[in-house]
Nucleic acid binder design. Structure first.
Lengths: 161, 161
DNA sequence: ATGTTTCGTTCGACCGAACGAAATAATTGG
DNA sequence: CCAATTATTTCGTTCGGTCGAACGAAACAT
């Protein structure tokens, strides 16, 4: 095995390690907040797409409208989201995340960010640029893989977002 | 903002992207196989620690013995694990993963691995070594953060199952 | 040998989370 | 201004997943 092949193999192994570490981190984060997978997914959708009506949230999360009522009830009870009246349509309800729902965890995030910031002092600008490029590209390719995984399996189960 | 600060900020942003991509990939992978979070966690434990007795699996997964019976029943029914007699103790049962439980997904993995392998041809040896080092170190630091998250949260809530 | 501990399973019960159908409220269109 | 449509909630139900307690079988100890 050449040095180059060895480096590539180690890249793959390290990538797997980081991947599982990320999954475990997110799992622990959700558990710490007392959130189920569905609830966390909903909060992520609301963060990424902005306030949504119950119906829109149902569509994005692939849930029945009745299920969203219960879901939002739980999120409100736990203090992670709230219903606000929709000025444009008094039948509907806008659901939005509570702005500072992560304040209690800020020290942890700060510590982690500081740790990574310290880590990259090891590398010169050229190396760091390569790292940034790699992370960006790897994320894009993993998103592609995720899409393949879904499309391939849901040919008959429309998500309809 | 200096170039260096900009690079570091982009490293953090790209890292978050990759992290969420990894989580979504794992979620899709589990859904594709019809596995719940608990079931996937159990399979991961069995893969990492080798065959375990039901009791050991219960301890590692923080489940009651009765729950493990049902869990392993489900995994067997779905074809992802099996019980084998424990030669050292006829009371106990060893649970192991079925060796080729990912064969159907091999093409997908191969494609993703090939994509990453192609990606790193962009970088010279120095840069690639930096990438490998970064991935390894970032994984270690994220594991640390996960541990903090858990320890900090369970100081008062003994799991004790 | 025989009493005790350990292992996994079975049983019965419970809870969270999802669903469909019906009910309620508000909007839209003729 | 009324009928049809749309948005959400309520209601009752179902299902999966977990638990504690009780049990039989095997191992251990004395």
């Amino acid at each position: 095995m050449t040095d180059r092949e060895d480096l590539t193999a180690r890249m793959l192994a390290a990538g797997r390690e980081l991947s599982t570490a990320a999954v475990m981190f997110h799992t622990a984060l959700a558990a710490r907040q007392g959130l189920s997978a569905t609830e966390e997914k909903a909060l992520d959708l609301l963060d990424r797409l902005g306030p949504l009506t119950a119906r829109q949230l149902a569509a994005h999360a692939s849930l029945a409208p009745a299920s969203v009522t219960g879901l939002v009830d739980r999120l409100e009870r736990k203090g992670f989201a709230r219903r606000v009246p929709n000025p444009a349509d008094k039948r509907s309800v806008l659901v939005e995340t509570v702005p500072d729902r992560l304040t209690g965890l800020a020290p942890l995030f700060d510590h982690y960010v500081a740790s990574l910031t310290e880590l990259v002092t090891r590398y010169n600008d050229i190396e760091l640029a390569a790292i940034v490029d790699f992370l960006t590209e790897a994320a894009a390719r993993q998103r592609d893989a995720t899409r393949l995984l879904k499309d391939d399996g849901e040919t008959f189960a429309p998500d309809s977002r």
